[in-house]
Computed example of a mutant assay.
Amino acid sequence: MAYGVASGALKAGVVIGLAGAASAEVTVAALGDSLTQGYGLAQSDGFVPRLEAWLQEQGADVSVINAGVSGDTTAGGLSRVEWTLTPDVDAMIVALGGNDLLRGLDPGASRENLDGILKAADVAGVEVLLVGMEAPGNYGADYKRAFDGMYGELSEKWGVPLAESSFLGALMQIEDRQAAMREFMQSDGIHPNAEGVTVIVETLGPDVLDLVERAE
């Protein structure tokens, strides 16, 4: 009889343990630049808190860490990815390249940096969502082809999903660009305002939700 009680207690403990493991919070690090960091916005209006709130509204038990640094290039992201990937991090969003574009950096160098970031995530066993950026046409067709294409190439190489939209893609695809700039962008024309962040989160949110589910 004592054996039966112990066995029952053991089974109950296992069930409780499994339930606890199943509901464990997933921690996602958002590695990026000022777009991720929330430049020019109230803290609650930034990409990371808005994304976390959206994910939780979908029923995800998730915490999103703001690993965005204003002005960071892909090289900057590579230099700090090791200490971003703490043991608590289960998944990572990689959204870098905007400052490489602003500086007209060699896409080949940007590709190597992103490759290094994805390698670090692979070594750490962390799930990744890669979010691309789009080069403007004024750098020339060859530059744009190399820059835009590197995200898909790295996604295939490392077997990580590439978000269906680039970070600012949802805003850039609005037909009336001038109206979109007035409604969704800050006065610098580079960073989204609070309304723009809402559109971005609603666009990228489903991809991040998939990331969370993979990391559970």
Rank of each mutant, 00 (worst) to 15 (best):
A9D: 11
A9I: 15
L10K: 13
L10R: 15
A12T: 12
V15C: 01
V15N: 00
V15R: 14
G17F: 10
G20P: 06
A22Q: 03
A22S: 13
S23Y: 04
V26H: 09
T27N: 05
V28A: 05
A29V: 10
A30G: 05
A30H: 11
G32C: 07
S34V: 07
S34G: 06
S34R: 07
L35Y: 05
L35C: 08
L35T: 02
T36M: 12
Q37L: 09
G40W: 09
G40H: 06
G40S: 13
L41N: 13
L41S: 14
L41M: 09
Q43R: 14
Q43I: 14
G46P: 06
F47A: 00
F47R: 14
F47Q: 05
V48C: 07
P49M: 11
P49C: 07
L51H: 12
E52K: 14
E52N: 11
E52D: 09
A53S: 11
L55P: 04
L55A: 10
L55D: 07
Q58K: 15
Q58M: 14
Q58Y: 03
G59R: 15
A60D: 15
S63F: 03
S63Q: 15
I65M: 11
I65L: 15
N66P: 06
G68C: 09
G68I: 04
V69L: 10
G71K: 10
D72F: 08
D72H: 04
G77N: 08
G77S: 11
S79D: 04
S79Y: 01
V81T: 08
V81L: 09
V81I: 12
V81C: 00
W83H: 05
L85D: 01
T86I: 06
T86N: 05
P87Y: 10
P87A: 13
D88L: 14
D90P: 09
M92K: 11
L96P: 06
G97R: 03
G97E: 10
D100P: 06
L101D: 07
L102F: 14
G104I: 13
L105V: 04
D106S: 14
D106Q: 12
P107G: 03
A109K: 15
R111I: 02
E112H: 04
N113K: 05
L114C: 04
L114N: 01
L114I: 10
G116E: 01
G116D: 03
G116A: 06
L118P: 00
L118C: 06
K119Q: 05
K119W: 00
A120S: 08
V123I: 10
V123Q: 02
V123S: 03
E127R: 08
E127G: 02
V128P: 01
V128I: 02
V128D: 00
L129S: 00
L130F: 00
G132L: 05
E134V: 08
A135N: 09
A135Q: 12
G137W: 02
G137P: 02
Y139G: 02
A141F: 11
R145S: 14
